[in-house]
Simulated scan of single mutants.
Amino acid sequence: MDYRGKAVLITGGASGIGAAAARLFAAAGASVAIADRNGEAASALAQELPGAIACTVDVMNPDDCLAMVDAVRKAFGRLDCAFNNAGITEVAPLKGAPLPETHELPLDIWRQVLGVDLDGVFHCLRAELPLLLESGGGAIVNTTSLQAHISYPRTAAYTAAKHGVLGLTKTIAKEYGGRAIRCNAVSPGVVDTPLTNQVIHQPEYKDMLLAPIPIGRFAQPEDVAKAVVWLCSEDAAYINGAVLAADGGYLA
């Protein structure tokens, strides 16, 4: 796939799936904007990739998202692909404490998870769509999760947010498909990333999480990133409003 002359924006781009996607897009010739709340990590990765830029952004802040896209406009003059990937689970704000039952979930954690995982995607889309339209169209991929389709106990906020992202993806696909903007989602399975490895390798969880995966291993970030790069490419030109499960067969 040839991305020469294309500009790509990735949120949550400094680590995990986002960083893997940044490297793959850059290897295919794209100019990449790496946006992340961890600005130092984003800058470090950008220095590895030819022509890449870094943006410090909190996707919960709509002004940050507008500034992020303005930086892309100034650096590249266009936007062709947006990968809205920034996200958290309840595990992060709870800082290792046990997941509470839903009726005991603190409201601030509910708001934080929804604020990043759902509001954040909306804030990014709201900022990205005008530049995509100015550029003559393009492709958007939003990161959902297995939990856009199923759920686990004690994950009310994350599950609600990811179901919401799936609905938002379909809305954008319907609304903007006629203006040459495709919008799809990728649903990663259990991926070995900095966001998850504090849980998935614990003995009490590992076997339980591996059991439903026919391939028999956790995904690596590159497994999902390759699906994203394909969804943004011309090879997927007729794919719009779809959700691609990169889950090793879990949902099957």
Rank of each mutant, 00 (worst) to 15 (best):
Y158N: 07
T159P: 08
T159G: 06
T159E: 04
A160R: 08
A160V: 09
A160I: 05
A161Y: 02
A161L: 03
A161E: 00
G164M: 06
L166A: 13
L166R: 13
L166Y: 10
L166D: 11
G167T: 12
L168E: 09
L168S: 10
T169W: 04
T169S: 11
K170E: 09
K170P: 01
K170C: 00
T171K: 08
T171L: 14
I172S: 08
I172Y: 13
A173K: 02
A173P: 00
E175R: 06
Y176F: 15
G177S: 08
G177N: 08
G178N: 07
G178T: 04
R179F: 06
R179T: 06
R179E: 14
A180K: 14
A180H: 15
I181N: 01
I181V: 15
I181E: 04
I181H: 04
R182T: 08
R182M: 09
R182Y: 02
R182W: 08
C183L: 05
N184A: 10
N184K: 13
A185Y: 02
A185T: 07
V186F: 04
S187M: 09
S187V: 08
S187G: 12
S187W: 02
G189K: 07
G189W: 07
V190C: 03
V190G: 00
V190E: 01
V191Q: 01
V191M: 04
D192F: 08
T193S: 04
T193M: 10
T193C: 05
P194V: 08
P194M: 03
L195D: 03
T196Y: 03
T196L: 14
T196E: 08
N197K: 15
Q198C: 07
Q198D: 13
V199Q: 04
V199H: 03
I200L: 10
H201M: 03
H201K: 05
P203E: 13
P203R: 09
P203G: 06
P203F: 06
E204D: 13
Y205H: 15
Y205E: 02
Y205P: 00
K206P: 00
K206M: 11
D207P: 00
M208Y: 12
M208A: 14
L209G: 05
L209R: 01
L210P: 03
A211D: 08
P212M: 12
P212Y: 11
I213K: 01
I213M: 01
I213T: 11
I213L: 01
I213F: 02
P214F: 11
I215M: 08
G216M: 05
G216Y: 07
G216H: 04
G216S: 05
R217P: 09
R217T: 13
R217I: 14
R217G: 10
R217M: 09
F218L: 12
A219Y: 02
Q220C: 11
Q220K: 14
P221S: 12
E222D: 14
E222Q: 10
E222Y: 03
E222T: 15
E222L: 11
D223M: 06
D223Q: 05
D223H: 07
V224Y: 03
V224K: 04
A225G: 06
A225T: 09
K226E: 15
A227Y: 06
V228Y: 12
